[in-house]
């Protein structure tokens, strides 16, 4: 059995996002890049499954659509424990583009299980996993909070309102995972970092697919209005302000 984990290269979650003056781009100078946190959890779980599988899972591959500058993120994934990595050499334009590129790159690889994080922490589109399963013409299960291996089956818990359902999808399928699938992301060990030097990182050309969305501009949220404190005894003033100033009653 082979597992593919799709990873995105995203700004560190504590980054202060600065927009360019014309609001058309994000200022990426001095940004520290990390593996998308949901993808990192997916990778950790994939490795746990492999280690517990007594050889049934032979390989965990990570795949990323991105420029060469994203390779440190891929090497970190290799240091964490992935066996090999594949980078599709293209800027990740939108979810459709990324899903199409991944599907194209793996069509001859026969992965049994494909992990995607439920969203990426940069644009939070939550679309790539489902699109990938459509491109591959295989099932997908979203909001997955638990993945276990039972003989040759993969059993997943899918979060639903008020509880979860247990699903045993036919292989291959795409598992779109959220928090809970593992305790915490794995920290790369010194040995892992050393081994990552020698693990294969393959670069493949992008296909001619085009993005479906067009980027227009960024708009920051309205700044929070100043808070006006009114004495608890002064209800009349509150009503007056809500009526005449805020005009909401």
């Amino acid at each position: 059995m082979k597992i593919l984990v799709c990873v995105s290269n995203v700004p560190d979650t504590t980054t202060k996002i600065k927009l360019s003056g014309d609001m058309h781009s994000v200022d990426l100078a001095n940004v520290q890049w990390i593996i998308n946190p949901w993808d990192e959890l997916a990778l950790t779980r994939a490795l746990e499954l492999k280690e517990a599988s007594e050889g049934k899972i032979e390989k965990v591959t990570v795949m990323l659509v991105g420029a060469k500058s994203a390779e440190p993120t891929m090497r970190k994934a290799l240091a964490i424990g992935a066996d090999d990595a594949v980078r599709v050499d293209a800027e990740p334009l939108d979810a459709y583009f990324v899903a199409g590129q991944i599907a194209g790159a793996i069509k001859d690889e026969n992965y049994d299980l494909v992990f995607c994080g439920i969203e990426s922490s940069d644009y939070n589109g939550s679309a790539m996993g489902s699109m990938l399963s459509e491109f591959m013409n295989i099932p997908s299960v979203s909001s997955v909070s638990k993945v276990e291996m039972d003989d040759d089956q993969i059993v997943v818990n899918r979060e639903i309102a008020g509880g979860f359902e247990v699903v045993v999808p036919e292989l291959p399928f795409v598992a779109i995972v959220q928090k809970g699938i593992t305790k915490e992301p794995r920290i790369p060990s010194m040995r892992g970092i050393m081994m990552a030097r020698k693990k294969p990182l393959k670069v493949v050309e992008a296909s001619g697919l085009e993005a479906l969305t067009e980027f227009v501009k960024y708009e920051p949220p309205q700044p929070k209005a100043a808070c006006k404190m009114i004495d608890a005894d002064n209800v009349a003033e509150l009503v007056d302000l809500l009526h005449n100033e805020a005009k909401i009653i």
Binding site: I187, S189, M190, R191, G192, I193, M194
Partner: peptide, 18 residues
């Protein structure tokens, strides 16, 4: 487990070789 205890030891002896 993370290998910090012997991170500078030669990998020949099971260290991290850092």
């Amino acid at each position: 487990e993370l290998g910090f205890m012997g991170m500078t030891v030669d990998p020949e002896y099971g260290g991290g070789g850092m």
